[in-house]
Amino acid sequence: MSATTKSKIKDISELNNIAKSVRLKILHMLTNAGSGHTGGSLSAADVAVAIYFSKMNFNPQDPSWKDRDRFILSKGHAAPLLYAIMAEARYFPEETLDNLRQIESPLQGHPCCKRLAGVEVSTGSLGQGLSVANGIALGLRLDNNPARVYCIMGDGETQEGQVWEAAMTAAHYRIDNLCAVIDKNGLQIDGPVSKVMNIEPVADKWSAFGWHVIEIDGHNMEQIVIALDKAESVKGKPTMIIANTTKGKGVSFFENKVEYHGITPTREELAKAVVEINNG
């Protein structure tokens, strides 16, 4: 059987508790680092937690285990989210989170696969993760390996043309061992996505490109788990989960604030945020 060290968690309240712990880690590490992306790390937290802890086979002691499921964070600026989850899963000690963005740190500003085992590919330049996820999925299929591939993208990210090249590829090659997620928080650096460069109708676009589309509340853990299970059962085409989310989710004074895309909490804000998340 698999060499996973964590059994998969299906209990919704347990997953929600992990998401709380992940959010706290994100906020602490960003406050320590003094720079980094707060809003988009918090918005994708619930989906990412569900993918890692309710679905994926992986082994932190053997990050390159060949039968592992793969996770690609295409929106690489949400690196703090990935690092918080990896710490939660014991890929590395929690203290390592204090090194975020420090010189020579394994926790680079955007994920670097050559510095941190368990990161599949380096990301940060938007629009590229889905292509890599497709390639991994095709490679696994050639080997008759049943492992699955997950890819989280941002909504602003889908303005990149390469995303649509990859969208065609996944449908053309009937890549059904892939589940992609759009963290649709509605905001990008320069403002609302609808104002900067409208991407609607998002669901229709992915359907038209040949994907199975599931639209959910990206903070409702039950809906997330059901969607991920459904994605696994869809055969002959890739699945896109459109997760409607709130940028900065979990901290009232960060929520839906465009300016918290790329700035970090002050010590005072951190203290208030911790109380909110613990009570949330």
Partner: peptide, 27 residues
């Protein structure tokens, strides 16, 4: 089975090649 025509989409081709290499293939 081991050939992937990516259409007129060079950027996607490179990313897909990188993904294939991550499963031990030599693209």
């Amino acid at each position: 089975d081991r050939f992937f025509n990516m259409g007129v989409a060079e950027q996607d081709m490179i990313g897909t090649a990188a993904g294939l290499s991550l499963t031990g293939k030599v693209p």
